[in-house]
């Protein structure tokens, strides 16, 4: 190995090492800080402390943990399942039943990707207020279900669906909805898994819309709880760290268990 080659390899390792350290440090910080008192945390203590038990106990006194977790899980899982169902129906429909009119509508659907949420939140809030849905989880889920991005993802993936399967099922006399349910869904399960991971992440981490709609403590999700604990005048960072760990754990878990699907889902848009 010549000298210049060695230098570039070394500098590549150095670059990656620094990047990996900076990427992982906040996670490490989160874990270390959960064992420290608030004062130690804001004065940058890097060692393990002995306040973990106190922090956890304080967190459980301040927050109804099972309820908050249940709220988050319920909203995230239900919204995700509905999103996937509705969007895969549309992706399948647009790709399998092509027509000029529907292709034009599809272009319009894609255009909605550019609509910023800020331009929707006021009318949506007024709509929910009028229908008495403020402070309900239904209000959180409804606007998130139809997703142009996931429709696009399913339409792109459907291009790889073997049409012979559909033709054979038709010959066997299956109705269109049966073909979708009994043939398309099982064949496309890896597409569904990838979509699930991506949409679940988005819903679990959803913040602005729940912040607007959920106003009482018994409906709040974990992200809202962490945010409100941290924005107190003198936040107890030890308690906040327990909150951030609990808020991050499910997404980290999903990521590590389904890493391949996660990446595949994200890349679905550039295929």
């Amino acid at each position: 190995m010549n000298v210049s080659r060695f230098l570039t390899t070394t500098s590549q390792y150095a670059f990656l090492g620094v990047a990996a350290f900076l990427s992982l440090f906040p996670f490490l910080w989160m874990l270390i800080s959960s064992t420290n008192t608030s004062i130690d945390i804001i004065s940058g203590r890097m060692g393990l402390g002995d306040a973990l038990r106190t922090n956890v106990a304080n967190f459980f006194t301040l927050v109804d943990v099972p309820l908050v977790f249940w709220n988050s899980a319920k909203v995230a899982v239900l919204a995700t399942l509905l999103t996937i169902l509705v969007s895969s129906l549309a992706g399948y429909g647009f790709e399998m039943f092509k027509s000029k009119a529907r292709d034009r509508i599809y272009s319009l659907v894609l255009l909605t990707l550019m609509v910023p949420f800020a331009a929707l939140m006021i009318p949506l809030f007024m709509m929910m207020a009028k229908t008495g849905l403020i402070n309900t989880h239904v209000a959180i889920m409804l606007p998130t279900i139809a997703s142009a991005f996931i429709i696009f993802y399913f339409r792109q993936s459907t291009k790889a669906f073997p049409t012979e399967l559909r033709d054979a099922a038709k010959v066997d006399g299956l109705k269109e909805w049966q073909i979708f349910l009994y043939i398309y869904v099982p064949v496309m399960r890896s597409t569904y898994a990838a979509a699930f991971v991506i949409v679940f992440m988005v819903n679990w981490n959803n913040y602005l819309w729940p912040l607007i709609v959920l106003q009482s403590n018994d409906t709040k999700t974990i992200t809202l709880v962490v945010s409100s604990l941290a924005s107190a005048y003198y936040p107890d960072y030890g308690v906040v760290m327990i909150g951030t760990i609990l808020a991050t754990l499910p997404t980290l878990l999903v990521f590590f268990v389904m890493q391949r699907q996660f990446v595949q889902g994200m890349l679905g848009s550039v295929k």
Partner: peptide, 21 residues
């Protein structure tokens, strides 16, 4: 069938996206 498959999405998009904007 083409319309039926895309109908749920179109309705939701109309109500929660097109109407608000």
């Amino acid at each position: 069938n083409g319309w039926l498959f895309i109908a749920p999405s179109l309705i939701l998009i109309s109500v929660f996206l097109v109407f608000p904007i």
